[in-house]
Design a protein around this nucleic acid. Structure first.
Length: 457
RNA sequence: GGAUAGGUGGCAGAGAGGUCAUGCGUGGGACUGCAGAUCCCAUCUACUAGGGUUCAAAUCCCUACCUAUCCUCCA
């Protein structure tokens, strides 16, 4: 398997540190609000990648951190008038709900930063003792100058960095590029005791404390979106390698591209974002997954309702073919596909830097072939072809494979269709009656123009 | 100013020296009680511009222009 490693800027043959076992870490969210679909793209990409690694026979420990203490959390909690802990708890739970709805279920452990304060402090102590960190009036800082490889991952020459353009130059730092490891306590903020007095961790140190407790000094894969490369991932490398003295933190660095609204990155600060929670009222988790996975993971991708709709058309064809194959009851038929061969081809493509786009390109061709021959497929042959779809679904989770859930949703959809015919005929007596029946069964209906959205309350 | 990715058909997006990407959309047709689903055909001088290398370049090299991201926080 080949992976594009950001560190070397090249395609490398992937070799796990321990044969058969992979330790993968992906930066998680700061839980101060609902996550948006841009965040979701990254999580879906790495979820699917982890699923593929497992499908390829590796045992994967997939670790994700949860930043549950941070300026944003404190500020937002203050605005609403609740405790930071209450806020982060709430949005951690909301985040997990989103992940479930998006079928992101490959993470072995979600590690909350505040549960690793002890490890964070001991990392800072080591850095301090070794001379990489210094004590200042408002915190403990990492001295970037002391780590000569700083900038290697992002290709930055630290002498060329433009200081003070966007960041306020702090008097407390020796050098502008230094970053904070420990923030000293300020009135009204949560704090923990430490050798430097009460305070709380800086952002970058959480991740290395968590990975070092669970993985040790080194691990296989570190993932995240490109906007985290500098300075976050550089800082992680600097911290951990300064502590361990080793040549690597993660052996492979994988970065996913950004989701764009128009020509700009979707982000909280620009305000041009769509929450996952909102998107899920319009689209299914499978539709969002298919949209995100049907492009190269490392490229930026534009998001819009229009693009979602066209992507959904393609997904429907796949899902319809899948459904039709499952419903075949004929004993005779001459059409066959060699599922073993197809799956081997898919693996080949995925082994090339997780080329999901080519997989779907090939799958679409096969879907057309299947549909063309749908009347000439025996139950036996359909069973074999379905193996292909099961393989696809194990990795991408884009099909509704749960039989009961699938049939119930189909039933609901048929009832809604029936109701639509009444609405079109302006027979509102009957359409309202159907709506009431559905509402009574806990199925909520929302009309908007010609389309109908529904959800189980 | 520096760094890192890019600039591909109406749209979204793969590919990375020679053969069809794929999907959506659009037009036509087949099937069908209607619709839907599905299939077929067409949309085939698409690769930012200008130079160069090569028998052959969207793909390699040079130059220019443009875009995004990072150099606070961000997935």
């Amino acid at each position: 398997m080949k992976i594009f490693n950001t560190y070397s800027r090249s395609l490398e043959e992937f070799k796990p540190l321990n044969a058969g076992r992979i330790r993968m870490f992906v930066c998680g969210p700061t839980v101060y609000d609902f996550i948006h679909v841009g965040n979701a793209r990254t999580f879906i990409i790495f979820d699917s990648f982890a699923k593929y690694l497992e499908e390829s026979g590796f045992e994967v420990f997939y670790l994700q951190n949860i930043t549950d203490i941070d300026d944003k959390i404190i500020n937002r909690a203050r605005e609403i008038g609740i405790e930071p802990e209450e806020l982060s708890d709430r949005f951690y739970r909301e985040f997990r709900k989103d992940m479930t709805a998006l079928r992101v279920d490959s993470i072995s452990l979600y590690a909350k930063s505040t549960l690793y304060i002890k490890e964070i402090i001991s990392q800072i102590e080591v850095l301090y003792r070794k001379g990489f960190a210094y004590d200042s009036d408002d915190g403990i800082y990492f001295s970037v100058k002391k780590f000569s490889d700083f900038g290697k991952l992002s290709g930055q020459d630290m002498s060329q960095i433009r200081h003070g353009v966007r960041i306020d130059l702090s008097e407390s730092k020796r050098d502008p590029e230094d970053f904070v490891l420990w923030k000293k306590h300020r009135e009204g903020e949560p704090y923990w005791d430490s050798p430097w007095g009460p305070g709380r961790p800086g952002w970058h140190i959480e991740d290395t404390a968590i990975t070092s407790s669970l993985f040790g000094d080194e691990y296989d894969i570190h993932g995240g979106a490109v906007d985290l490369i500098f300075p976050h991932h550089e800082a992680e490398i600097a911290q951990m390698r300064s502590i361990s003295g080793k040549k690597f933190l993660s052996h492979y660095w994988m970065h996913s591209g950004l989701l764009k609204m128009g020509s700009e990155k979707m982000s909280k600060s620009l305000g041009n974002f769509v929450k996952v929670r909102e998107a899920l009222t319009r689209y299914t988790g499978e539709q969002l997954r298919f949209f995100f996975l049907n492009s190269k993971y490392s490229s930026d991708l534009a998001y819009s309702d229009e693009l979602m709709i066209s992507s959904n058309e393609a997904l429907s064809r796949i899902q319809n073919a899948f459904m039709n194959l499952r419903n075949i009851s004929s004993d005779t038929g001459s059409f066959k596909l060699d599922s073993k061969k197809m799956i081997a081809e898919f693996r080949n493509l995925l082994d090339n830097n997780f080329d999901t786009r080519s997989v779907f390109s090939l799958l679409m061709e096969k879907v057309t072939e299947i549909n063309r021959n749908i009347g000439d497929i025996s139950r036996e042959s359909a069973k074999d072809i379905l193996e292909i779809f099961h393989f696809i679904d194990r990795i991408f989770a884009i099909l509704k494979t749960d039989e009961s859930e699938y049939h119930i949703s189909k039933l609901i959809e048929s009832i809604i269709e029936l109701r639509q015919t009444f609405r079109k005929e302006k027979d509102f007596q009957h359409s309202d009656m159907i709506r009431k029946m559905l509402e009574d069964s806990g199925i909520h209906i929302e009309d908007s123009g010609d389309s109908v959205r529904w959800r189980i309350e």
